[in-house]
Amino acid sequence: MDPDAIQRGERVPHGGETDRDLLDFSANTNPRTPDGVADVYTAALEDSRRYPDDDYPEFRAAAAEFVGCAPERVIPSPGGLAAIRLAMESVLEPGDEALVPYPSFGEYAREIRLQGATPRFVRYDDLLDLGPTTLEPCALAVVCTPNNPTGDAVDPDALASFAARCAAADTTLLVDEAFLGFTDRPSMARLDRENVVVARSLTKLFGLPGLRAGFAVASGDRRDALETARRSWSLGTPAARVGTHCLRQDDFVRDTRERVADERDRLREALETRFDVHPSEAPYLLCDVGDRDVATVIADARAAGVAVRDATTFRGLDSHVRVAVKDRAANDQLLSALGVRDADEGGDD
């Protein structure tokens, strides 16, 4: 990390509501957690009197099975963002350029700048069409699938083709799959290319964002670099044990995907009576509020007990909010707070 860049750096805004009296639709986390989590955590807390096994064999095995790769390619990390930072630290040097999608997760550009490198912004839906002229000057390219905040998931074949072009240009490709677990699309971890690093977050899919558990997947020399650079004991015992347990809950994952897809369709149909809603494969919907004032929409929702995400903080968006997809009862409260009725109940009011 570049000391001068740290002095110039700033925090970036995120979803997540600290007021526990509000129903939080600003953060895209599963409202449910797998059965047995509390028991696993309690047992792990007692075992936390000793250092964890820094090899994390059980966690690596569970993560590898979940994404379809060899266990030795898994690099444990305290959350998906830690995996992203680790990858960027291992690739970028001061003066480098990195391709960053927009609108997308604000931490990409921040983390690139903290390395003393320069983000080069490209529309997220144009990124995979780039050729050698654009790729060759860049040490890194970032792809988010499904993209945050739009919810678009990238076709795996198109992404594999882009990875090959990145390899030819000597560009490392970082694929952020924080929300891919909500879909049935395959992970790019199966691609097994030395120029590709995959970052995964466990805590969104399994409803435990405060646990901070995730991992990276890499191959060859890149994998060795990440393994050397990662912090010792990079996962606490509770995070490693609960993460291992969650990754093996196939029925929970299947049920979550079905519920989110059903509720997302229902929410979108209702919200479209008032807003322009972007198609999504993720557990969130991006809504263009048109000529309404975004701050007023957010304030009115808060007054009704619901927090939604101000999406104007994403580069390129100026009239948008983002809402999570929760369970049916909570989603009904969201619709009510936004002045929208369920389409099954007769449209908007």
Rank of each mutant, 00 (worst) to 15 (best):
G290V: 08
A270R: 11
R110N: 10
E58L: 10
G316E: 06
E258V: 15
E194N: 12
R268I: 04
V297D: 04
D125S: 13
D192I: 08
R113M: 14
L128I: 15
F314H: 02
E227R: 13
P101E: 08
L338D: 01
R110C: 06
V175T: 03
V67H: 10
E269D: 14
G80V: 00
Y124A: 07
L285C: 01
Q115N: 15
D155M: 06
P279I: 01
V100W: 02
V142I: 15
A117L: 05
L247G: 07
G36N: 06
V67R: 08
C246W: 00
Q115H: 14
C138G: 10
A261T: 14
G243Q: 00
A167S: 12
D251T: 14
V289N: 03
G316M: 05
A229D: 15
C287A: 09
A311F: 03
R264Q: 12
G220T: 07
A324M: 05
A98P: 04
E194K: 02
D184G: 08
D221I: 02
E46P: 01
H245S: 11
L22V: 09
E97K: 14
F121C: 10
A178L: 13
T203A: 09
R8P: 11
T172Y: 02
L235G: 06
G79M: 04
E136M: 15
D35I: 09
A329N: 11
A301V: 08
L247Q: 09
T228H: 14
T150L: 00
A141T: 05
E17A: 10
D54P: 06
R113V: 12
H245T: 10
D4R: 15
P78R: 10
L285A: 00
D251Q: 14
Y56C: 10
S280V: 08
R222I: 00
A311S: 13
R241E: 15
D129L: 14
V91D: 03
T118N: 07
D155Y: 05
Q115D: 13
Y41C: 08
E227A: 15
A261W: 03
M88R: 06
L271C: 08
C69V: 15
A307F: 07
S90N: 09
D349S: 14
R49F: 15
V142Q: 03
L135F: 13
A139R: 14
